[in-house]
Design a protein around this nucleic acid. Structure first.
Lengths: 349, 349
DNA sequence: ATATTCGGCTAAATCGTTTTAGCACTATAA
DNA sequence: TTATAGTGCTAAAACGATTTAGCCGAATAT
């Protein structure tokens, strides 16, 4: 592979000159137009490719952002990574994936965290990390002085900046929509209780109901699971087999998959959606519009969340280089959600 | 950030010694156990983190594999990347994502390809690349001498090694299953005609039907779309609104989303699935089991495909370092599919 | 006539590792 | 007594870029 000195030799100038030309460093050195063209032509003709690693070593800037955690098999994670990638590449940085397999156990998190330092990342984004994992990561980042940001993760205890979706608004929109349609018996199927986000969203849901003068009986809250079928099935069955007068007329599901499971069970119990039962999801995965009937849901803009996270971490990186005034960032950016009306909601009969 | 010479200074030995200890290079130099322990202790205590970039520069091995193309917002791409990642990390390599946004147009492919050389990747995996993109990539890889592998992409014209799923077998399994249930009028909804995989799978489908003595009338083949709703809807409507005696009793859909759209339309036309119509998909996305009814489909093991691809490219990288006999690899590895029985198929009535 | 500036370039140090060649010393062998 | 071998370590040269300091001659200013 060609190096800068090969071009220097070929054009009869020094490596410094070649470097100046290739990087357009007018401020640093004056180069005549003739020389400039000669060098440029030679580099092009010989097929020179800058060595990113060597440059990073000399300048101390790897132009690399890491993204740690998150299971790519989940559509939302893919979308967030894609968004981050788009933003990062457009700033001529690159993105490095540091997964924490096996459900993010201590060992895998530790090795990913260690690797993030070895790679001399300029900054890192942590996704879907558990409390202890965050602590580990935060300690490492502080020790080796690179900025950190949490994505799609609420860590009330931590002072780290984060990017999440605006759950509370999304939930309020959904509930208000159902209320407006005339529903008064609205139940909730949430994710697994172990999920950190579940209690937060549950209280947002409860709060919105209360603000409309509706109560939420305990048995109207069931735990499903964001990704597993069985718990969501059970939860839906529990709610939908209540006696007719007591049965909810609308179901708010904390995830699209949960909503799909609910549709299945409604069908099994001969409840027509949306005539007998309204269902609303949360996420807007690709399949939502393909569902039967198409799923009304609260869209979380995962791609945008990824973009915002990347923009934010890049800005922090840039800032910390230029000024040493402690950078002031919103510690938590909430990306708006949007209610997507499709076919699973209607007035109660 | 600490360097090796800091540890050297602290322990009163040379950098070379520290390097030997840290890398367990017994073959290269003898180090007394005393010194070894001292160095190890200092490194641990001071929190030393090797500089991956500097090492790469000296050794000429970046231990980096690239993965080019593919839209992470698609579940299958996420799964393949996750699989590749798992395998690559377990060999102490890292993975670099080089997306080709905007539908992989010439510009974005060219910049991704250029970047892959600048990063001095040891090898790269290309996913879902168009013919011209492959040509571009292949030229670059040959010029700068790194191995290439195609994933989930059939490029009959190219000599590049590739990893794909065993479409033909999967399709045969599906068709035979339907045939076994008693279906004789089996229609096909494929992806968009522009998709390279579509004609290949179409002929596999046709071949299997013929081997069972069934013909495939032209109007029994409709083009849907792997990701867009409308074309699949239209295709399904065209097939399912045929007069009863002519209407297919079973639908083979070239993708799960297409199958979902078909379920929607069957429902709209008051055809009960699976009593009036059997539907079978191809992919087994996460949502398949949540569908209503749960979708019978041919599972493609995307994660495994990613793993196999990574294993393969790592092996080629290793090989080309050690022996210079031209490495002999299966130029195309086909990962098995599996028929997943759920609720959308039954005997015709 | 001398000082100053400016235009165009280069030498050499540097980033943090790895690795080759070899030094100095001791122990064993001939 | 002199080779030979082995033990434990180090100096210094890479790897491929960027950057600082400075050189040399010509033009301009004083």
């Amino acid at each position: 592979m060609l190096k800068i000195s090969d071009i220097a030799q070929r054009t009869g100038v020094s490596s410094s000159t070649v470097s100046f030309v290739l990087n357009d460093r007018h401020e640093a050195a004056r180069i005549s137009e003739t020389t400039r063209q000669k060098v440029l032509a030679a580099a092009e003709e010989m097929g020179y490719r800058a060595n990113h690693g060597a440059r990073a070593m000399r300048t101390g800037n790897t132009r690399m952002i890491g993204i740690l955690g998150g299971d790519l098999a989940w559509e939302q994670v893919g979308a967030m990574v894609a968004g981050a990638l788009e933003e990062i590449e457009s700033h001529d940085y690159t993105l490095k994936l540091l997964p924490t397999p096996m459900g993010g156990n201590a060992d895998s998190v530790e090795s990913a965290v260690r690797r993030s330092s070895e790679l001399r990342l300029q900054g890192a984004i942590g996704m879907h990390l558990s409390g202890p994992a965050i602590a580990l990561f935060e300690a490492e980042a502080k020790r080796y002085k690179y900025p950190l940001l949490l994505l799609d993760t609420r860590a009330p205890g931590s002072a780290l900046p984060s990017v999440v979706s605006d759950d509370a608004c999304g939930i309020a929109d959904a509930v208000e929509y159902l209320f407006g349609l005339g529903h008064r018996r609205i139940a909730l199927i949430s994710g697994a209780a172990s999920d950190a986000i579940v209690p937060l969203r549950q209280s947002a849901f409860r709060a919105t109901l209360q603000s409309h003068g509706l109560s939420l009986p305990d048995h109207y809250v069931q735990n499903g699971d964001f990704t597993l079928l069985a718990p969501s099935i059970d939860a839906a069955r529990a709610l939908l087999s209540l006696p007719t007068g007591e049965r909810p007329t609308a179901l708010f599901c904390m995830g699209d998959f949960i909503a799909m499971a609910a549709i299945q069970i409604a069908n099994e119990l001969n409840l027509k959606v949306p005539q007998d039962l309204s269902i609303i999801g949360f996420a807007d995965f690709a399949m939502a519009q393909f569902a039967n009937p198409p799923l009304t849901t609260v869209r979380q803009d995962f791609t945008e969340m990824g973009r915002v996270a990347a923009r934010q971490i890049l800005q922090i990186c840039g800032q910390s280089g230029k000024s040493d005034a402690s950078p002031q960032f919103d510690s938590c950016i909430e990306v708006p959600t949007q209610l997507i009306l499709r076919g699973t909601c209607g007035p109660p009969n």
